[in-house]
C-alpha cells in the first residue's frame, strides 16, 4: 500500500499537467477521484446510514432547547432557552436517577472491574491448552445472551418462584426475595454483570498476558523470585497499560450502566433503587410525551460523558499512557 501512495498511477501524472499545480507528492483531486471512486462508492451506503441514524438525531438534540411538539415539528416549536435544563436540575427524580447511576458505576468499579483481571491471570496459569480453551469457551458464552435472557435466568434461580426459594422452602425456611429487594439490588445487578460479561472481559487481558516476555519470568525465577513476587513485579506491570485503558473507557462511560438490565428490573425493585439516567429518560418522555425534557436529560448525559472521556484521556496522557486516542 505504501508503494501505491508514493507512486501515483501513470494517468494521474499526465493529467496533472496544465492544471493547478498539485500539492507535492499528491495527484490532483480529479485524478484521485478517478483512482478512488470505487472506494468512495463502497463507503457511501454505510456513511448514509450513519448520517441518518446518528448525525441527524444528534442535531435533533436542539429540541432540548424547545418546547417541542410532534405536530409543530422542530421548525414550528417555540424556543425556550435553558428552561428544560432548569427543570431537570430542580427535579428530585432526576437526582435520584443520577445518584443511582453514579453509585452503581462506583460499586462496579470496585466489585466488577478487578474480576476479569483475576480470572485472566487464573486462566493463564492453566497448563493444559485444551482445558483452558474449554473454560474460555464456557465463560465467554453468556456475553452473547440477551439481557432479557440473563434476567429471566436469574429469576429462575434466585426469584420468588426460583430454585433458591424452592430449595429454602423445601428445607423449611422463609424464601429470600433477592430479585425484588431494593437493598440488594446493586449487588444483584453487579452479580448479573459479572455472570454475563466478566468472562468476555478476560479476552483483552489474556492478550496482554500472552504479550509479556516469558524470559522475564525465567530470569526472575532464576534470581529466586517467588510465584507471587513474579505476579506482582512482572505480570501486573505488564497489564498496566490495558488496565488503565479500560479504566479510562469505564470512566468515560460512567453514566452508562446498561439500559436493558435496569429497564427490565425497575418495576420489580422500584424506581428509588433502580432508576438510572436512561430509564429516567424513557419513563419521563415516552410515557408522558415530554419530548424536550427527555432530550434535555439525554443531552446532559451525553455531554457529561464526552467531558469525562476527554478528561480521562488527559489523565492517561499525563500518566504516559496512550489512552483511547493519541495526543495530537
Amino acid at each position: 500500500m505504501a508503494v501505491l501512495r508514493k507512486s501515483p498511477p501513470a494517468d494521474a501524472l499526465t493529467s496533472s499537467a496544465g492544471t493547478r499545480p498539485p500539492k507535492p507528492g499528491r495527484p490532483p483531486l480529479r485524478a484521485r477521484l478517478r483512482r478512488d471512486w470505487q472506494l468512495l462508492a463502497m463507503t457511501i451506503p454505510a456513511v448514509g446510514l450513519l448520517v441518518v441514524f446518528h448525525y441527524v438525531p444528534t442535531l435533533g438534540n436542539v429540541i432540548a432547547f424547545q418546547d417541542y411538539s410532534p405536530y409543530d415539528g422542530i421548525t414550528g416549536s417555540p424556543w425556550v432557552g435553558l428552561y428544560n435544563f432548569q427543570w431537570l436540575l430542580s427535579d428530585p427524580e432526576f437526582w435520584t436517577a443520577l445518584r443511582n447511576t453514579v453509585t452503581i458505576t462506583a460499586f462496579q468499579l470496585v466489585f466488577y472491574f478487578p474480576i476479569p483481571i483475576a480470572l485472566a491471570v487464573l486462566l493463564d496459569s492453566v497448563m493444559s491448552r485444551r482445558l483452558r480453551l474449554f473454560i474460555q469457551g464456557v465463560v465467554y458464552m453468556p456475553h452473547f445472551f440477551s439481557w432479557v435472557l440473563v434476567v429471566a435466568l436469574f429469576q429462575q434461580i434466585l426469584g420468588g418462584a426460583g430454585l433458591l426459594a424452592q430449595t429454602l422452602r423445601q428445607a423449611g425456611h422463609e424464601p429470600w426475595h433477592v430479585m425484588t429487594d431494593p437493598d440488594a439490588f446493586i449487588v444483584l445487578v453487579t452479580a448479573q454483570s459479572v455472570w454475563k460479561d466478566a468472562g468476555w472481559g478476560t479476552i483483552i487481558f489474556l492478550a496482554a498476558l500472552a504479550a509479556i516476555n516469558t524470559s522475564l519470568y525465567e530470569a526472575a525465577a532464576v534470581d529466586g523470585a517467588s510465584r507471587w513476587r513474579r505476579l506482582w513485579h512482572i505480570t501486573l506491570p505488564g497489564l498496566r497499560p490495558v488496565i488503565l485503558l479500560l479504566l479510562i473507557l469505564r470512566l468515560g462511560d460512567a453514566l452508562n450502566v446498561g439500559f436493558e438490565q435496569f429497564f427490565l428490573q425497575r418495576d420489580a425493585v422500584g424506581a428509588e433503587a433502580a432508576e438510572v439516567l436512561d430509564t429516567f429518560v424513557y419513563w419521563r418522555t415516552l410515557m408522558t410525551g415530554a419530548w424536550s425534557y427527555g432530550a434535555a436529560a439525554g443531552l446532559f448525559k451525553g455531554l457529561v460523558g464526552l467531558i469525562l472521556i476527554v478528561v480521562a484521556n488527559k489523565v492517561a496522557h499525563r500518566f504516559g499512557e496512550q489512552g483511547i486516542y493519541k495526543r495530537s
Binding site: M1, L4, R5, R26, L29, R32, L33, R35, D36, W37, L39, L40, T43, A46, V47, L50, V51, H54, Y55, P57, T58, L59, G60, N61, I63, D278, V281, Y282, T285, L286, W291, G294, A295, G298, L299, K301, G302, G305, L306, I309, I324
Partner: peptide
C-alpha cells in the same frame, strides 16, 4: 487505503460515534 479521496474525514465520521451517542429521544 490511507490517502484515498475523503479517507480521513469519512473515517473520522465513524470514529466520532465512539465519543457520543445521539440520545434516545432524537
Amino acid at each position: 487505503r490511507p490517502g484515498s479521496v475523503l479517507h480521513r474525514p469519512l473515517l473520522f465520521l465513524f470514529l466520532l460515534t465512539f465519543l457520543f451517542t445521539p440520545g434516545m429521544i432524537p
